[in-house]
């Protein structure tokens, strides 16, 4: 343990590497130790080799992608983009004026007015005619209904009997529905179905 404590820690080795790489003065005791201690010198060499290989690989990869031609093209693109800096944006006009120019003056100005006036008049006449026809037909129908009511005697219906008959018809209809559907197809609902009183059971009781 005592022997290892004398060696440079990894962080100090890394500081030495950074100082050397950026041309800064290395910590003097660390530099002396590196010069004297073989294992630490070897560790330092490994670290420096690893870091340099990392950098070399990264730079080589980027340089392979960004060739001199690419750089030149990019410079041109940047210059092109800078031309528009500080200038107001150009507004591109909508092609509507050119389409209007193709039309003659009389057509472009008078025709829409006549068309609008004719359409409005037609609409007004149509609505008025429809309203008057409906009013006439409704009045005729009302007169016919009154005359018919006066001529035909009303059948005498016993209210209680009618209600019972309609209830029986409803029950029969619902029972038919239930028979048609039988049981619910969903298994989870069977329990609910068993608990629920059915119309046919009520009517039987």
């Amino acid at each position: 343990m005592i022997y290892r404590a004398r060696h440079l820690q990894d962080d100090r080795l890394f500081e030495c590497y950074l100082a050397e790489r950026h041309g800064e003065p290395m910590d003097l005791p660390a530099a002396e130790h590196l010069a004297d201690c073989g294992p630490c010198g070897s560790r330092y060499a490994d670290l420096a080799t690893f870091m340099e290989a990392l950098r070399r690989d990264g730079e080589a990869e980027a340089d392979a992608v960004f060739t001199p031609d690419w750089l030149k093209t990019q410079q041109q693109q940047i210059a092109h983009r800078l031309e528009h800096v500080g200038r107001p944006a150009r507004v591109i006009s909508f092609p509507e004026p050119s389409a209007r120019r193709a039309m003659t003056a009389s057509v472009s100005r008078t025709a829409p007015r006549w068309v609008a006036a004719a359409a409005a008049a037609g609409l007004f006449v149509g609505v008025a005619l429809t309203a008057s026809y409906e009013w006439g037909s409704q009045a005729r129908a009302a007169r016919q209904r009154i005359a018919l009511d006066a001529a035909t005697p009303r059948p005498r219906v016993t209210p209680a009997v009618g209600r019972v008959e309609s209830n029986a018809a409803d029950e029969a209809f619902l029972s038919e529905l239930e028979f048609a559907l039988e049981r619910p197809h969903t298994r989870e609902l069977l329990a609910f179905d068993a608990l629920t009183p059915h119309v046919r059971e009520v009517s039987v009781k």
């Binding site: 990264g58 730079e59 990869e61 980027a62 340089d63 992608v65 960004f66 690419w70 750089l71 990019q74 410079q75 693109q77 940047i78 983009r81």
Partner: peptide
């Protein structure tokens, strides 16, 4: 330019995006 492209490429790992970022 070159240094900027290297940094941007290492960040983005895509040449087109790095190009746009630098521009």
């Amino acid at each position: 330019q070159r240094r900027a492209l290297r940094i941007a490429y290492q960040y983005l790992r895509d040449s087109a995006e790095a190009d746009e970022a630098v521009q």
